[in-house]
Design a binder for these strands. Structure first.
Length: 423
RNA sequence: GGAGAAAUGGCAGAGUGGUCGAAUGCGGCAGUCUUGAAAACUGUUGAGGGUCACACCUCCGGGGGUUCGAAUCCCUCUUUCUCCGCCA
């Protein structure tokens, strides 16, 4: 959520920047500023009425104490109007606040200056690529065939237990996934992140805080009996740890990493491009969350990108980094880099990480602030990124590391798997 | 799941209808003293809105109500604790 005072101060710049994501902000900004004006003036009137009635009440109290009951009762009569006025004003105040809030919820984050205008993912810019794409034998298979051949993942069994998109990992497939989780968490903690284990179900307030609600409600599984949501990413519970907190400058930066399963309804996506591990309803992911001072956030974003690069370099997977264009940028993000690994047997790129700076957009909703040395309060900047999304890394490893004799395990994972080959 | 108790500032803990945004203690910050530190003493110390700055307004778990006036009374929700039951 953007801050009203920033909208007011940077209106023209914001309108221009939001055009890059094809969002026409002009008229909604007008309405927002108008509503904010109304909110302030209503608040002012309300305050005056409260001040008046507080004063009268005090006087009545004093009169009662000194036994001047007649005078006190006479004074009581004066408060009747104030009461009805204040009731009407508070109602209109509530309405204005709700309207303003709803209006603000509709506006996406302002893209960073480096973000290019664009329609969709085809306009994303590739800014970096690394790693050799292996030359596979003619017998090379896509990962879902490999999973079957070596009995690593059973998609049909998942259908039976739950439904499509809930695979069962088996044997070395399960072990390889566990190895990746442990490897990623170890690398993250070595890089200074603290590991957390968080709830997989979150309440509505948390969903609103990180921006999944109200705009992505249909993407999350909702547990109706208890009005809770299954998390679509660890970002939600981890960032919400600090919801409504006033931090000290010395507490920053806060760097957290956590492994969780993620649940996404992915309503409306079917077909060949979602085969195998490409898109699931439940998948594992290791996440990075940074809560930092505003002036540090772009350095931290760079650090996160470098860190994720290291993981892919060590796994020796061919990957590229894209800077998302305005049209593909997430609602809450100011700047996002996507990492994609090349899935050789499918001959396509698979997104395995998305690293974003939300600046104050989430912090404003979440009310995460910090006090600086002069005791001034500022909103923090929040960032997050995957390190990494497991199934697609798994797909990349299976496909890129396959040989006619079996699948080799990347060297850095062998200490975690305890085996070098899947045969 | 059943029975009871509770929820107040960073923490502990007073406060049961009227100058209470809230005693007191601890902690924090600033100062005095000291070569320095500790101790002692003095002052200061919640959040949000509003203002050039004051004034002023809101907030005592959340929501609603009674009242001229609510931390205090009523309703409701949530959470915590104790006892019982169940249980990885």
């Amino acid at each position: 959520m953007l801050e009203v005072r920033n909208i007011s101060a940077n209106k023209a710049d914001y309108i221009l920047a939001l055009k890059k994501r094809n969002f026409e902000a002009e008229s909604i900004f007008e309405e927002i500023l108008k509503l904010d004006e109304k909110r302030r003036s209503t608040q002012k009137q309300l305050d005056e009425i409260f001040a008046e009635s507080n004063k009268l009440s005090k006087e009545i109290g004093i009169l009662f104490k000194s036994g001047e009951v007649e005078k006190a009762n006479a004074m009581k009569a004066k408060t009747a109007n104030l009461k009805s006025d204040s009731k009407a004003l508070s109602e209109s105040m509530d309405q204005v606040s709700v309207d303003l809030q709803n209006m603000l919820y509709q506006v996406p984050n302002v893209p960073h200056e480096s973000v290019l205008a664009g329609q969709d993912e085809s306009d994303n810019e590739e800014i970096f690529a690394e790693g050799d794409i292996p030359k596979l034998s003619e017998k090379a298979l896509p990962h879902w065939e490999l999973a079957k051949k070596y009995d690593l993942i059973d998609f049909e069994l998942g259908n039976k237990i739950t439904g499509a998109g809930f695979p069962v990992y088996k044997g070395k497939g399960a072990k390889l996934q566990r190895a990746l989780i442990a490897y990623f968490l170890d690398k993250n903690t070595e890089a200074g992140y603290s590991e957390v284990q968080v709830p997989l179900l979150v309440n509505e307030a948390s969903g609103y805080g990180t921006g999944q609600l109200p705009d992505k409600e249909g993407q999350m599984y909702h547990v109706g009996n208890d009005d809770l949501y299954l998390i679509p990413t660890a970002e939600v519970p981890i960032t919400n740890i600090y919801r409504d907190d006033l931090l000290n400058e010395k507490d920053l930066p806060i760097q957290l990493t956590g492994f969780t399963p993620c649940f996404r309804r992915e309503a409306g996506s079917y077909g060949a491009h979602v085969r195998g591990l490409n898109r699931l309803h439940q998948f594992d992911k290791v996440e990075l969350v940074n809560i930092v001072k505003p002036e540090d956030s772009y350095q931290v974003l760079d650090d996160m990108v470098s860190h994720v690069k290291t993981l892919l370099q060590e796994l020796k997977l061919p990957y590229r980094i894209l800077r998302l264009c305005g049209g593909d940028l997430g609602f809450t993000s100011a700047l996002t880099f996507d990492f994609e690994v090349f899935s050789t047997a499918q001959d396509r790129w698979l997104e395995i990480s998305s690293v974003s700076n939300f600046e104050t957009f989430q912090a404003n909703r979440l009310k995460i602030r910090y006090k600086d040395a002069d005791k001034k309060k500022h909103l923090v900047h929040t960032l997050n990124g995957s390190s990494l999304a497991l199934p697609r890394v798994l797909a990349g490893i299976l496909e890129n590391y396959q040989t006619d004799d079996g699948i080799r395990i990347p060297e850095v994972l062998v200490p975690y798997t305890g085996f070098e080959w899947i045969k």
